[in-house]
Each structure stands twice: as structure tokens, then as C-alpha cells.
């Protein structure tokens, strides 16, 4: 920690709080979750960076999507993401959530995950090593400092379009919209 930064932190103490306690929801998709147990246990010890896995999305504010996402898993991912309290940050791991990776012509794998939920950071690789995860986490710190990690704000702002994309894939969704969808209703009310 740098003493010069103390004044800056006193101005915005919330930012420092978010930055150094990124609690990750322990949600496993695909093969990337193999890299997470060594990352959070004593060999690499992610707790140095403030990253702890927690059991429920209600306590978490970091969502790591660790590998390929099938259509059925995407439904669970959206429900988990919508349950997390704000501010929330999402990081996509590996090449599969980025552009499909080796499943680019598979009938049941999501190709671009950012069409359905907003993504703040991408870690390339198949699979990324734990060191790459820490580089990603420190990059996320810088983004939080600058105010560039705005995934949850974009989700609120463009919720209509995200919801429309989700419904194109699933048909009608069984849960009600998180934010009001129709803008006209909003203005009248």
C-alpha cells in the first residue's frame, strides 16, 4: 500500500473496499474451473489479492465464467448474475466464452457471451494459468480505480437489448425482468 494514495482513498472509500475484496461466486462452467482450486488454495493463494470464493451469489461481487458455456448453463449464469448485489464485475476465462474457441461450430455452445451479459475483463488462453488470473485481477483493480469497470451500469442501461437477446435464444423467460423493459411506460409513470 502506498501512503500517497491515502488521501485519494479517503475521498472515495467505497472504491478501495470494492477493489480489495473481490469475492467470487463459486460457479463452475467448463474446464476452467480446474485452474481455480490451485489458485485459491495455498500454492498461489488468491486471498493475497482479496479474492475468496463464496457459496452464494448474494455475497459475491466477482463472477468468473470459467470456460465454455452451454445453452442450458447460460440460463443459470443469467439468474446468478441478476442475483448478485451491485457493484458486480464479470471476467470471462479462456477462448471459449470469448468467441466459441474450439466449439465455434457446436450446436449447443454459446459463441459470444457478451451478447447476453456484460463482461468487464477477458483473460485469453486455453486454459489461462493461475498467474494469468492474478494479472487479470490486478487489471480489474486498475479499471475499478479509473471507473472503467462499468458492466453492471451497462446492463442496467441496455437491459432491454440484453433481455431481447436472451429471449431470442430461450423463447419466453420464466422469471420477470430485473429492470423495467418498456421505456415508454417508464416515461409516463
Amino acid at each position: 500500500m502506498d501512503r500517497k494514495n491515502i488521501l485519494k482513498w479517503l475521498k472515495e472509500p467505497g472504491k478501495m473496499g470494492h477493489k480489495y475484496s473481490l469475492w467470487a461466486v463459486y460457479f463452475c462452467t467448463g474446464c476452467g474451473i480446474i485452474e481455480v482450486p490451485p489458485t485459491i488454495t495455498s500454492q498461489w493463494d488468491a486471498e493475497r489479492f482479496g479474492v475468496i470464493p463464496v457459496a452464494t451469489p448474494r455475497q459475491a461481487n466477482l463472477f468468473m465464467i470459467t470456460g465454455y458455456v452451454s445453452v442450458k448453463t447460460l440460463k443459470a449464469i443469467i439468474r446468478t448474475y441478476e442475483q448478485m448485489p451491485e457493484p458486480k464485475y464479470t471476467v470471462a476465462f479462456g477462448s471459449c466464452p470469448i468467441n466459441g474457441g474450439m466449439y465455434w461450430d457446436s450446436y449447443n455452445t454459446i459463441k459470444h457471451i457478451d451478447k447476453y451479459i456484460p463482461i468487464d475483463g477477458w483473460i485469453a488462453g486455453c486454459m489461462p494459468r493461475p498467474e494469468a488470473i492474478f494479472i487479470g485481477v490486478t487489471k480489474l483493480w486498475m479499471m475499478i480505480d479509473k471507473g472503467a469497470a462499468t458492466g453492471y451500469i451497462r446492463y442496467r442501461k441496455n437491459y432491454k437489448f440484453y433481455r431481447r437477446n436472451q429471449e431470442k435464444l430461450f423463447g419466453k423467460l420464466p422469471w420477470p425482468p430485473l429492470y423495467p423493459v418498456d421505456e415508454k411506460e417508464n416515461k409516463n409513470g
Binding site: K111, H112, K115, R154, N165, K168, L169
Partner: peptide, 9 residues
């Protein structure tokens, strides 16, 4: 199915 869906960003 997948390529037809537009990108939000």
C-alpha cells in the same frame, strides 16, 4: 441461431 443475434456493445 447464434450469429443472427446482434451484439449489444
Amino acid at each position: 441461431t447464434f450469429d443472427e443475434i446482434p451484439s449489444v456493445e
